[in-house]
């Protein structure tokens, strides 16, 4: 790879027909793409560890108060959680289709799939909004706002602290995903992506799958304890 990289570099600069998306310090597009991919995977590793701390904390607390966690989860509606799981799974599929559309130069499908993905993400947040407002009325918001009185109220308190920290952090990631996807949609409408340059779509796809994957772990942990 390297020996052909060096010639590619000088040819490209010398004769001025290199891709406008190629940054000055890379020899060729393939190298730039692989580099971005490594960067994205490392970023995803940091995300896994960021959530990892919360998952470990949840596991420890659940081990200390198993009964309370069990009774606390009855305040959550598993049907809402399941609906959101399905919505996110569909969005992951449309995201894959968006990457594929960019790879095959299908502009129309690219834009359609990005819109569908954004739509699913927004649906997820709307469902989450209804769930959160339900908790608000029951007095189950975390910390100082917690006003629920019932059996196991202390340990249920910790359950809801984790619930809001983890789904809240996840919600922030979904929202960030929506912002990035909207930017991609805006650029895609300008025709910025094609089969030779689709790095941003591909990387956002990786991020989106991770957000989806984290939810797939959150759903059984909070909604389906038994």
């Amino acid at each position: 790879m390297s020996s052909h990289a060096i010639t590619a570099d000088h040819e490209a600069h010398g004769h001025g027909h290199h891709d406008p998306n190629l940054q000055h310090h890379f020899a060729e597009m393939g190298q730039q793409f692989e580099c971005s991919k490594i960067g994205m995977w490392l970023f995803l590793a940091t995300e896994v560890l960021l959530f990892g701390g919360l998952f470990v904390g949840y596991g420890l607390m659940q081990g200390q108060h198993p009964e309370a966690f069990k009774s606390a989860h009855h305040h959550l509606d598993w049907r809402m959680g399941a609906l959101n799981t399905i919505v996110l799974l569909i969005s992951s599929f449309t995201m894959v289709m968006a990457v594929w559309s960019a790879q095959t130069n299908n502009q129309k499908a690219l834009i359609r799939n990005l819109i569908l993905t954004i739509g699913c993400a927004c649906t997820f947040m709307v469902v989450k909004y209804f769930e959160y407002s339900h908790k608000y009325h029951e007095g189950l918001l975390p910390g100082a706002f917690y006003s629920y009185t019932g059996p196991h109220q202390n340990a249920e308190f910790v359950f809801f602290s984790f619930y809001f920290m983890m789904t809240g952090l996840h919600g922030i990631h979904v929202t960030a995903g929506i912002v990035v996807l909207c930017y991609l949609l805006y650029r895609a409408k300008q025709g910025a992506y094609n089969s030779s340059y689709y790095t941003p779509i591909d990387l956002t796809g990786l991020y989106w799958h991770l957000v989806d994957l984290i939810w797939i772990y959150l759903f059984p942990l909070f909604y389906l304890i038994s």
């Binding site: 940091t46 995300e47 560890l49 960021l50 959530f51 990892g52 701390g53 919360l54 904390g57 607390m61 975390p142 910390g143 100082a144 706002f145 308190f157 910790v158 602290s161 984790f162 809001f164 920290m165």
Partner: peptide, 20 residues
């Protein structure tokens, strides 16, 4: 990232007494 989430939990503890 683990330090990051620890700092956030500590701040939430100070601000909202989440109890973790």
């Amino acid at each position: 990232p683990v330090l990051g989430i620890t700092a956030v939990l500590m701040v939430m503890e100070r601000a909202f007494h989440i109890g973790i």
